[in-house]
Amino acid sequence: MVRWEPNAPERLSRAALELFTERGYDNTTVAEIAERTGLTKRTFFRHFADKREVLFGGQDALVKVLAEAITAAPDPVEPLAAIGAALEATAVFFGPERLKWAQERQAVIDANPELQERELLKLATLTTAFRDALRERGVPEPGASLAAEIGNLAFRTAFTRWIDPANQLDFAELTRRTLDELRQAAATLA
């Protein structure tokens, strides 16, 4: 085994993604992921509950940034403007250095129903964070829940556009444009 090196979670995530891409998710074991990084299974389980979670690390940090951005939005602000601030704040997780990893990760998720289910749970957590932060700001129901759903839709759409190989825009710009498009679409339905 390799002596201690920093950033074990990131190394494990990278190794897992490489193996999932090479062999498939179902054909990769935790032992193989740990071996690829020169770490032990025990070290793997110190950082991740199971091999699915290696693709979903950072969710707690994402939720925290999102909720803090909504809470910190200046008063008075309409709910969708607070959602916009939160979406822009999450762009720190989606820089150009993460794009290739995100594209490969999404390909693995798209190829595996178990991972698709986990992705949906992650997105539901984001919606709940949007809603709870809006409620904390005093946004009443059903407005908080509706704005949270729009925020989730904007996040998902912006992310899908961001990982598209033809995309030339950064994540923050994509979130702004997507939220504007959703506002315009909703206005035409009234």
Results as ranks from 00 to 15, higher is better:
L55Q: 06
L80S: 03
E53I: 01
Q59N: 12
A82T: 05
A89N: 05
A91I: 02
E68Y: 06
H47V: 09
A82H: 03
R105H: 09
I83D: 02
P113N: 01
A69Y: 00
L66A: 03
T71W: 10
A82S: 11
L80K: 03
E88W: 00
A67E: 09
I70A: 01
W101Q: 11
I109M: 03
F94L: 12
L39I: 01
P74R: 09
L55M: 06
V54E: 04
V63E: 11
N112I: 04
G95F: 03
A89Q: 05
N112A: 10
D50G: 11
G57H: 12
T37R: 07
A72P: 01
F48V: 08
A111C: 08
L80P: 02
T40F: 05
K41D: 13
K100F: 11
K100H: 13
K100V: 15
A86R: 00
E88L: 03
A82V: 04
D75M: 12
D60K: 14
A81F: 06
L87F: 06
A91H: 08
T37C: 15
N112L: 02
A91P: 06
I70M: 03
A72C: 02
V54M: 04
L87P: 05
A61I: 04
T90K: 03
E97S: 11
F45S: 03
F45K: 00
P96Q: 13
R98E: 14
G38Q: 01
A69N: 02
A107V: 07
A89T: 07
A111L: 07
E53K: 10
L87E: 03
L62A: 14
G84M: 00
G57M: 10
V65Q: 08
R42A: 15
A102C: 10
G38F: 00
I70Y: 05
L87R: 02
A61G: 14
A69K: 00
R46H: 13
P96R: 13
R46L: 13
F94I: 08
A85Y: 09
V77Q: 11
G58K: 05
N112T: 15
F94Q: 05
P79L: 00
V63H: 04
A111S: 14
R105A: 10
V65T: 13
G84H: 07
G95W: 02
D50Y: 08
V77S: 15
K51T: 07
D75V: 14
A91G: 09
R105K: 15
L39D: 01
V108H: 04
A107W: 01
V65H: 07
Q106M: 15
E97C: 00
D50R: 09
K64M: 11
D60N: 13
